[in-house]
């Protein structure tokens, strides 16, 4: 077991069941992040199920990925209040989906908000402080990370998803370590962008380690 990992309910076959929810906005690379986590878990011998938003809602709409590790007898969707980890690619999307997070759950949130066109048109409000407070009040542990800037520093804001995976690995909540996810990145991501992605992954990892000493 990794340090800091709470006791988990076992789903049948004796291994460790972990449910991870990723919430973001269409175009942020949530699907790739979920595939990489799944690939790492399968490599470690787990049965994984995922569920994703694909299609019309992708066009700047809300997207959610469910990743269920050790889920042979389960459905692909995380029930309300059962997610162990919520990775919020965008604050309001983290808040929107926090009802799926367990009372013991942790939340990793990218701080940069994406204002929908409706917010810019002034028809709806977006109070970022209220959103952040709500996230903290509804998770056992919430860490906020400026993933956008870290990704930019690594070479492209498109690497935000990889930064957040690094942050997740640093939280030590997964039934496998940093190297497993790094391997999944190496196995699945375009070699052309490998250096940048590994950099992005480490920036996310190191940032969380630095604030959680």
């Amino acid at each position: 077991m990794f340090a800091g990992m709470p006791e988990r309910i076992h789903r049948g076959c004796g291994s460790l069941s972990i449910d991870i929810l990723i919430a973001g906005v269409g175009g942020q690379g949530t699907v790739l992040a979920s595939r990489l986590l799944a690939a790492a878990a399968i490599d470690e011998g787990y049965f994984v199920r995922t569920s994703e938003t694909i299609g019309m809602a992708q066009r700047g709409g809300c997207v959610v990925s469910h990743i269920r590790i050790d889920s042979k007898e389960a459905s692909p969707v995380i029930p309300w209040g059962k997610a162990d980890i919520l990775i919020g690619f965008e604050p309001s999307e983290a808040a929107r989906n926090i009802y799926r997070l367990s009372e013991e759950g942790s939340c990793i949130v990218n701080t940069k908000e994406i204002k929908p066109v409706t917010a810019s048109l002034g028809t709806v409000s977006y109070d970022i402080d209220a959103v952040n407070k709500y996230i903290s009040a509804n998770s056992k542990k919430a860490v906020f990370i400026d993933g956008y800037s870290l990704a930019q520093k690594a070479g492209s804001v498109k690497a935000l998803n990889i930064v957040l995976l690094g942050a997740t690995a640093a939280e030590s909540l997964l039934p496998f370590g940093k190297s497993s996810i790094e391997k999944a990145i190496k196995d699945n991501v375009n070699p052309k962008f490998m250096d940048m992605n590994i950099k992005a992954f480490n920036y996310g990892f190191d940032y969380i380690k630095s604030i959680c000493k």
Partner: peptide, 15 residues
């Protein structure tokens, strides 16, 4: 019941 803050609606839009 939790009091959820107003969250921006995010309908799909043209890219």
């Amino acid at each position: 019941k939790n009091t959820v803050p107003d969250l921006p609606v995010r309908p799909p839009v043209l890219c």
